[in-house]
Amino acid sequence: MDFTLKIWRQKNAKAKGKFVTYKINGISDSSSFLEMLDVFNDQQVTKGEDPVVFDHDCREGICGTCSLYINGRPHGPDDAVTTCQLHMRKFKDGDTIVIEPWRSKAFPVIRDLMVDRQAFDKIIQAGGFISVNTGGIPDANAILIPKQNADSSMDAAACIGCGACVAACKNASAMLFVAAKVSHFALLPQGKAEATRRVQAMVAKMDELGFGNCTNTGACEAECPKEISIENIARMNREFLGAKIGSQKKVVKEGGF
């Protein structure tokens, strides 16, 4: 298969980037999108030119490292897959493919298609964890968890933190990511102890980092490679309001009410 690639090239975080058009020929329809880029980069190196920088790691769709905004869609034209799982047969021979980095104030471009997603780590550090005591191993099944809650929690926990929700959102909002992380703890008894503090701290951090506001458009849900539902956003809103109204003292100073 032959393609025309329009790729965002940017030397470093400060440089002004631009789109550069390349041709690539003889790509197998069974190769993944990232393998296509590997072939492309090989050719670049052979020609003595700079290869295109892009994020990737496990290439199994579970690490959340790969990104790429392909022809107007995060992770490209397929549902519920990451870019590494996207096959070239999803494109037509001779297609022009526009490849852009995630665009968000909170995800600055480092180089070419690679963006800095530390903002997500900072949100997790603000409250996306549970505190546990050391000691003996608790008995399995000692804590009762309704099946429904366990399932919903597991669905939310499927979030790999790739940032496709932010990339897809017209407001560059991180609500789906934060909602998934809040939900997967909020639904389990182990997460309840810190629930009120967690949701307030994570939302405050999200706001502080410059993500946009949610307008319930649903683009995040449609583009999420792990099919996280926006029901989680409603749950987070409930958790947040409950925490704000119910808590007896100001838990989080910054971020306000």
């Binding site: 329009k6 965002w8 789109f19 905004y69 022809n71 107007g72 869609r73 526009v98 852009e100 665009r103 968000s104 104030k105 909170a106 897809a168 017209k170 407001n171 560059a172 909002s173 410059g210 993500f211 946009g212 506001n213 307008t215 319930n216 458009t217 649903g218 683009a219 849900e221 449609a222 583009e223």
Partner: peptide, 23 residues
């Protein structure tokens, strides 16, 4: 705030399945 959250826009307009009027 939402406009400021994406200082550099995409070249290819976003593709979203849901709620057309919300945009």
């Amino acid at each position: 705030q939402n406009w400021l959250a994406r200082p550099v826009r995409y070249k290819v307009a976003g593709y979203s399945h849901l709620s057309f009027f919300s945009k």
